[in-house]
Computed example of a mutant assay.
Amino acid sequence: MAELTGLTPVGVHAVAGHVFEVDTEDGDLVVAKYDPRPDAVLAEVAGLAWLTEPGAVALPTVRAHDDRWLVMEAVEPAAPSAAAAEELGRGLADLHAWGADGFGAAPGPSNAWIGLAPMRCEPGADWAPWYLADRVQPYLRNAADRHLIDRGDVSTIEKACARVDVPREPPARLHGDLWSGNVVWSNQAWLIDPAAHGGHRETDLAMLALFGCPHLDTIIAAYDEHRPLAEGWRARVPLHQLFPLLVHTVLFGSGYARQAVTAAQAALRA
Rank of each mutant, 00 (worst) to 15 (best):
207 M>G: 04
195 A>C: 03
138 P>R: 08
211 F>C: 02
204 D>H: 04
209 A>E: 13
127 W>Y: 12
134 D>Q: 14
196 A>V: 10
152 G>E: 12
203 T>G: 03
207 M>Q: 09
213 C>V: 05
150 D>H: 12
191 L>E: 13
190 W>S: 01
159 K>M: 14
217 D>P: 14
174 L>Q: 08
139 Y>P: 09
165 D>N: 03
169 E>G: 00
172 A>Y: 06
190 W>N: 02
188 Q>S: 13
198 G>K: 02
202 E>N: 07
133 A>H: 14
161 C>E: 13
202 E>V: 03
198 G>Y: 06
195 A>N: 04
192 I>T: 12
169 E>T: 12
132 L>V: 06
166 V>G: 05
185 W>Y: 14
163 R>F: 08
209 A>Q: 14
213 C>E: 02
205 L>V: 04
137 Q>C: 12
137 Q>E: 15
178 L>R: 01
178 L>P: 00
201 R>I: 07
143 A>L: 09
177 D>T: 04
211 F>P: 03
199 G>Q: 05
206 A>C: 00
155 S>F: 06
135 R>M: 12
216 L>S: 00
173 R>N: 10
178 L>H: 01
135 R>Q: 11
219 I>N: 06
164 V>A: 14
171 P>Q: 10
165 D>R: 06
163 R>A: 14
217 D>C: 00
156 T>M: 06
161 C>D: 13
170 P>N: 11
208 L>I: 08
207 M>C: 09
133 A>F: 11
173 R>A: 11
196 A>D: 08
181 G>I: 09
204 D>I: 05
131 Y>R: 08
199 G>D: 06
161 C>V: 15
194 P>Y: 09
176 G>V: 05
127 W>A: 04
198 G>S: 05
166 V>P: 03
133 A>Y: 10
209 A>Y: 03
129 P>N: 09
144 A>N: 08
192 I>A: 06
132 L>T: 11
209 A>I: 01
132 L>I: 03
188 Q>A: 13
160 A>N: 07
